[in-house]
Write a protein that binds this DNA or RNA. Structure first.
Lengths: 164, 164
DNA sequence: ATGTATGCAAACCATTTGCAATGAC
DNA sequence: GTCATTGCAAATGGTTTGCATACAT
């Protein structure tokens, strides 16, 4: 082990090992340095079951007694996005969210335009459609499908408010 | 005519008339006031052929000698989004963009993750499948599909840089 | 040894907020 | 007359930047 990045960040074994390899390869390829911070951040990200934002990530790292500056967090997330390991979601009401790319590709996002809640939905047909798309003069890397609408809670609330 | 919102904002006739009606209906329904500013902003929006951001909109209104405060601009765009007349895009590199909803629904967005350029692409199959989606406990209103990747320019540049 | 990456604090800037004045109803 | 909407200016807060220090190579 070239450096001791593995602190007491609770870790999701398999997922992380795989991504660590990808990341290492990417960093080498781009001649970027393999720092303790970068790997600790990636490891921490693996512990989120789904979306997360800067605040949550920062907090989780602090909780694990691993301190990084916000500047480094922003830098590292950018590297991870460029490397294709994570995906960035910018949705209306909510703050910028990130998600492991391997997770993001498997579903679309149902976004409530009232309360901002995000639900995930898998659909094989759509996935196939997107995968089968023929695009010229553009090299697709990944996609994100957002369907905006009303979640059941907000719809119910709205119906009551508008008189039965 | 209840008020003189029609200044010298250059106008795209048909498109605006139709949207004006929708907007009027929406405002009445929600018991919101029909102000000169709101209609002037909508009219101005109709003159953009595609995406636009706050700056461009503000500028275009100023150019037409119609001054609104930024607070009003933000308020009005929110009302227009809620009313389903325009759609909000928040993409990585670029600033928040808006687009007439009637335009947005007809295409997906190819976003270059390098330079941020947006290209539009229509695909009938995909459109049909999204429209035909069956979702429980969620009422879809509209969707947005973003495909991230490399535009031809950036790809070319990258290939040259990485040695032939 | 070299130059990239980090940490900190200050700077930035799009968006939001507070409040008095306006005007739609 | 009432209360939503506007304008202005100040406040906010997530993100970026500058620079000295640390450290991967």
């Amino acid at each position: 082990m070239p450096f001791a990045w593995s602190r007491n960040v609770k870790m999701d074994g398999k997922k992380y090992i795989e991504l660590q390899n990808l990341f290492t390869k990417y960093l080498a390829e781009k001649k970027l340095r393999k720092t303790e911070e970068r790997f600790a951040i990636l490891e921490c990200i693996c512990n989120f079951p789904g979306h997360f934002d800067m605040c949550q990530l920062y907090q989780k790292l602090e909780d694990a007694n691993f301190h990084v500056s916000r500047a480094t967090l922003y830098n590292t997330l950018e590297v991870l996005v460029d490397g294709g390991l994570i995906v960035r979601h910018q949705l209306p009401t909510q703050s910028v969210q990130y998600e492991l790319r391997s997770l993001a590709e498997t579903h679309m996002h149902l976004v409530c335009s009232k309360c901002g809640a995000i639900r995930e939905l898998k659909d094989a047909t759509l996935r196939r459609d997107v995968a089968g798309l023929k695009v010229t003069r553009f090299t697709p890397e990944y996609y994100a499908l957002y369907i905006y609408g009303l979640c059941s809670k907000c719809k119910y609330r709205l119906q009551r408010k508008n008189g039965k």
